[in-house]
Design a protein around this nucleic acid. Structure first.
Length: 427
RNA sequence: GGUGAGGUGGGUGAGUGGCUUAAACCGCCGGUUUGCUAAACCGGUGUCUCGGGAAACCGGGACCGCGGGUUCGAAUCCCGCCCUCACCGCCA
């Protein structure tokens, strides 16, 4: 959520940001409406508080008068109090209304994109930030997509998941399950070595938590909800992990804060269909190791670069062909100021699969989180960032497809000590 | 799920309607004293928000788990909710 004073002082910048996000000109009026509401909120607040101050003073006097036995004077003051209260009613109600509407509208304004964010409408307009250098890997004629490989090698079973739960809940089996576990451990170990503190958070969160990182109200339909207890299943570890610092007031020397966590992620993905969602390409439950950083505003973009380096090094070690794209205004997440996606090339499907998304939210999340640090005497909002390092299901898909041979599926060297086998063979 | 006890500032904790501008102690910051450290003593020490000011700061309001209510006046009384702890039940 943006701060009103920021909005007031940077109106043009905010408007241009919304234009970059392809907002229609008539929808930009929301900003003027917000500023209007805020100015009447301040006016009403002053009015109400002046009356309150007078009330407070009077009731103190009444107490004193009673003590002195001056009953009649006390009664007279009481009459004044009740007329003051009558006067307060209207502005109080207006204030309540204005505040509610203001709050509502503020939730509808997304983050201001960084200057680096390109203009564009959809993922087709994303800018290639780092391209795969050589020609893309080619597989032979009889190369199989990962969902076929899964059958041949008995690595995961989607029909079985449908029996247990429903579509999009894969059951990993045998070497597939071990590969899954190996990748999680490998990613966590690498994050640990890069200085991230490992946390293992709850998988269900309350509404306050979901709101603070911006999933509510924007992505309400995307999350599974446990009605009976009012809990949401997390769509990413970002939610519980970032919320660890909700309400915190940090010292400058606390930076950088680097956290990592493995969790399953649950996404309803309503409305998805077609060939692009076959196999592991898009599922309702997948495993992911997330990295989260809380940074000094001056250092957050350097931190973002470090995170890109970290994710790149993982993909290098996994020997997967990948590219990095900078999301355009139309594809940029609601809460993000700048996002880089990592896409791995799936040679059998001949398409790029998104496996990581690394973003700087600047103060957008920390405003809702009320996550601040002491800058001298003042308190300032910190910057929050996060990125997948990495999301499992699609990595598994790419590993299986790209490394298939006559004699089985060869695994990258870095995983051997984690899996306990170097090659997936027919059972 | 049942019963009981609780929820007060960074911490412990006092406070049953106005003398609370939330005591006291601890912690923290600054100072005095001091070879250093410590002790002792003195002063300061929350959050949010509105207004004024270049700023230091000054003034108003709110905040004692959350939301309502009673009252001229609520940390204190009443109602609802949430949470914590203890015991019982169930249980990996």
């Amino acid at each position: 959520m943006l701060q009103v004073p920021f909005l007031r002082e940077n109106k043009e910048r905010v408007l241009n940001g919304l234009r970059k996000r392809n907002w229609k000109e008539e929808d930009l009026q929301i900003i003027d409406r917000i500023l209007e509401l805020d100015s009447s909120r301040r006016k009403l607040l002053q009015e109400v508080e002046q009356l309150q101050a007078r009330l407070k003073q009077l009731s103190g006097e009444i107490g004193a008068l009673y003590k002195q036995g001056k009953r009649e004077e006390a009664e007279a003051s009481k009459a004044e109090v009740s007329s003051l209260k009558e006067q307060m009613k209207t502005p109080e109600e207006q204030l309540k209304k204005v505040k509610a509407e203001l709050e509502q509208l503020l939730l509808e304004v997304p983050n201001v994109p960084n200057d680096l964010v390109p203009f564009g409408k959809s993922e087709d307009d994303n800018e290639i930030y780092k391209a795969w250098p050589d020609e893309l890997p080619e597989l032979g004629e009889n190369a199989l997509p990962h969902w076929e490989l899964a059958k041949v090698y008995q690595l995961f079973d989607l029909e079985l998941g449908t029996k247990l739960t429903g579509a999009g809940f894969p059951v990993y089996l045998g070497q597939g399950a071990r590969l899954e576990r190996a990748l999680i451990n490998y990613f966590l170990d690498r994050a640990h070595r890069a200085g991230y503190l490992e946390v293992s958070p709850p998988l269900l969160v309350n509404a306050d938590t979901a709101r603070a990182t911006g999933q509510l109200p924007d992505k309400e339909g995307q999350m599974y909800f446990v009605e009976r207890d009012g809990f949401y299943l997390i769509p990413t570890a970002e939610v519980p992990v970032t919320n660890i610092y909700r309400g915190a007031i940090l010292e400058e020397e606390d930076f950088p804060i680097k956290l990592t966590g493995y969790t399953p992620c649950f996404r309803r993905e309503a409305g998805s269909y077609g060939a692009h969602v076959r196999g592991l390409n898009r599922v309702h439950q997948f495993d992911k190791v997330e990295i989260v950083r809380i940074e000094h505003p001056d250092r957050s973009y350097a931190a973002l670069d470090e995170m890109l380096e970290h994710v790149s090094s993982l993909l290098d070690e996994l020997e997967l062909p990948y590219r990095i794209v900078r999301l355009c205004g139309g594809d940029l997440g609601f809460t993000s100021a700048l996002t880089y996606d990592f896409e791995v090339y799936s040679a059998a499907q001949k398409r790029w699969l998104e496996v990581s998304s690394v973003s700087n939210f600047e103060t957008y999340q920390s405003n809702r989180l009320q996550l601040r640090f002491k800058d001298g005497k003042k308190k300032r909002l910190a910057h929050t960032l996060n990125g997948s390092a990495l999301a499992l299901a699609r990595i598994v898909a790419a590993l299986l497809e790209n490394n298939q041979t006559e004699n089985g599926i060869e695994l990258p060297k870095v995983l051997h000590s984690y899996t306990g086998f170097e090659r997936i063979e027919k059972p």
